[in-house]
Design a protein around this nucleic acid. Structure first.
Lengths: 254, 254
DNA sequence: TGCTTTTGTGTATGGTAGACACAGTTATTC
DNA sequence: GAATAACTGTGTCTACCATACACAAAAGCA
């Protein structure tokens, strides 16, 4: 949770010191080791002890490279997501936004712990910022305002996160199937209390059970975005939305 | 992470035992104490020790009520979100879905740790299922398929989560402002590498900085949903979307 | 050759979750 | 009423965890 520490670790490229023994490790090596552990055994298995042991060093040696565990995890997350694809295809901005969102998924699926780690306030790393840059570049020249471009990006990334989380919960994986079965069982036993859930679940199973949630949400969002872009293109200075309520919704104080 | 334990704790209403001393505590009392700590000092401050001390008991006594910490946290989360509003207003299904999504926000804002805790596979609790029921009841009779209703629910809830997370990061709160400033500073120093981000950020600040992300995304999603409902109403048996690609996107194996 | 900086390590502290045995309390049963 | 069984709260114990600090060895610089 040390913002300054994370900032320094993620963004500060310190010049290598001149005296003393050569460092045997590096930020990248340590982070990649942590990523390997988190991928294989979950984030809970990542401890300074464990990472150091994997590298053949003592845990205290890691503190020569990393100010603390939370900063290491932040580094792991940024590294695990990697850089955005250099090419999003030849389509229009809409197709490329779709490609961008789809490109986000493999990272989340390969490293599910990134989802846990990137909830809540944090310092954005170089790769995360590069992903933002990649999407915002696509949205440039659409006529959307700056805040609107950021919001669109956020909605799309949120959808990718959402789908990744569902995939991690629902499908093939051993505990996943169990979870889906548990939900169904719970609802089945209490069908009178949750009739709409029961109806949706059984209907969904009868439909064949193909997961179309990814495309469903993506189409939803991109269609809406296209409509708004068309509006902005006609009246570039107007910031009103066709369906925006007269007074924007105020988030009530918690 | 003990699925069976969480299931029993969240859903099992065991008959009170007949012999022995009356229990001095209860699931609810313990969970509410944990919620208080998490709200005030963050999830990291919640430990068995701490909760027990707050109640004037030893930590081991809690294990008479709760199988472990993760199960306690699951109970806390379900309790903290509470039940959905009984009445979503008099509007059409679209207005009521908007009201449902907005009703989700105060819980997330009051208990930001719920976001962290509800990422990843988990057993849904009674309150979470009641929220699902509430939204699915609204979507009943719209002509959407079962899976589509679930997907719509998921996109809306995901948007609420997304916004709550942004609010926790961006605005008034002391560390939040700092974070926004940090992002801006990082981008400003490296404007050549992230021109689109810089443009969007500065443009966003010039626009006045009012957060319209909530309505922006909500309108996006609801507009798209309305269009799809209209399609289904005309051809209720068709499951095609107007913009769905010929072949649904396959999630590539991680 | 000394001086200084830097690395890796060993030790110590205070925190965590949880297993287990035990004593005291209470309702049921003989 | 007495014996028994079940249940609660507690004290003790283990095995981890992050991390502060001091120290010795190593390597460049004077």
């Amino acid at each position: 949770m040390d913002l300054a520490g994370s900032l320094e670790l993620l963004w500060g490229d310190r010049p290598g010191p001149r005296r003393g023994p050569k460092p045997a490790l590096s930020h990248e090596l340590i982070a990649r080791t942590g990523i390997g552990i988190a991928d294989a055994e979950g984030l809970a298995a990542v401890s300074m002890q464990r990472v150091a042991a994997e590298l053949g060093f003592t845990k205290m040696s890691l503190y020569r490279y990393v100010p603390g565990k939370s900063e290491l995890v932040a580094l792991m997350a940024d590294l695990a997501m990697g850089a955005p694809p250099a090419d999003l295809g030849d389509g229009d901005w809409c197709d490329r936004l779709r490609a961008w969102t789809l490109a986000l998924l493999p990272g989340f699926l390969r490293h599910p712990w990134v989802l846990e780690v990137t909830t809540g306030p944090r310092v954005v790393g170089p790769n995360e910022l590069a992903w933002m840059e990649s999407a915002l570049a696509v949205l440039d020249g659409t006529g959307l305002g700056g805040a609107e471009r950021m919001d669109a990006l956020s909605v799309l990334a949120g959808h990718a996160r959402n789908i990744a989380q569902q995939v991690a919960t629902t499908p093939g994986g051993d505990p996943g199937t169990q979870l889906g079965a548990i939900l169904f069982e719970v609802v089945r036993e209490r069908g009178d209390r949750y009739p709409a859930v029961q109806a949706a679940l059984t209907e969904s199973m009868d439909e064949g059970g193909q997961d179309k949630g990814l495309d469903f949400g993506l189409d939803l969002i991109l269609d809406g975005l296209r409509a708004r872009v068309a509006t902005r293109a006609r009246w570039p200075t107007s910031h009103d939305s066709t369906t925006l309520p007269a007074t924007p919704t105020k988030i009530s104080d918690p």
